[in-house]
Design a binder for these strands. Sequence first.
DNA 1: AACATTCTCAACCGCGGTGAT
DNA 2: TATCACCGCGGTTGAGAATGT
Length: 374
Amino acid sequence: MGHHSCCNQQKVKRGLWSPEEDEKLIRYITTHGYGCWSEVPEKAGLQRCGKSCRLRWINYLRPDIRRGRFTAEEEKLIISLHAIVGNRWAHIASHLPGRTDNEIKNYWNSWIKKKIRKPPAASTTTSSSANTSPNNPPTAACSTATSDHVVHAAHAHGHHQLHHHPPAFGVTAAGADHLQLDAIINQNLASLPPKLACGGGHDSPPPSTGLPHQCPLFMFDTGAAVSPPSSLIMTSMTQLHHHHPLIASFTAAMADDTPIYLPPLVDGMLGSLRCAMDCVGEDDDVTTGHCQAAAPAGAMAFYGDDHGHHQKQQQHLQQQLEQQQQQLGQHEQWDDDEAQHLLMWDQEVLTSSNLEAMQSGAHSLLFMGPNDHD
DNA sequence: AACATTCTCAACCGCGGTGAT
DNA sequence: TATCACCGCGGTTGAGAATGT
């Protein structure tokens, strides 16, 4: 239990802030700004470290802070975002104006505690019914399961390695499906420029090469629970395409056997757009984009190459996976039963014939990725 | 009323990333 | 390239409030 490095030499006060301290900090920030937090305490006349000042300002004092209970819409957004990006609270907070990462984190953790203490009584009943009561959001459990139900795909020596992380809570797939898909549809696809949207892009010239290097994989996770597989009902491709415009566009295009170029893997819901823009920007050629902006990866997903952050998450998830497997007495990374609920796609082009393979084989997951061999 | 338990949330801690030197 | 300082983030703690017994 040491002090911050920035506090070592100073006599700094700790603990709760007094109103006088708040006033000093507010007065200083509003007149001088906060260019360098390490200078703020001294210049503001506070016996605090810069880190503490920053935290106090960001989490409590800044004028655009929004306090009070989370609205139902905010709850939904948090749940959806968490299902996709996990515990990246700052990322989630960036999509909730006036809310801080700390606040969202506290809110989420309080829900986790509740769920641990009081697991869902009827895990076999569908949780897709809309219940946004602040005191009873079953969707939280579903989305937690979705985020915990992580399939990690990595390229390794020309084949995909799959790691499965089962849900922490016993839930059904439907609620998670809706959450993920709603999030994707409402906040991702809906915001896409038409020229980048996959669905309406049949008139665009098809890409001439493979998927972008930085987007070697595409994974569609319907958010279905994995165990028991028999509980997976609504996540076949046929059913899915009613909910997801990307899949709908796939199947629509299948009618005339138009090749569909698969979108790449993306980094989370809103990150997908960024990824798409990056891809386009780096290639400087929209036609090589492969509908990447429409990538709907609603699950945690990893490129498996040079993304250090993802590698870190991979390691973390790998550890979680191993723990889960130990708990479940599983020794294989991926057993046959679970594999039945995956479809690995190892080509770049989706055609009617291989779509049929998907429809016949994929129940809970559609997983696609081009070969490593470029 | 008194005590125990649970909940909320502000604050702290440590780590990793980044930029300057 | 190595080192350092700083910043930002996520995990965790703990005090006070709320609730239950």
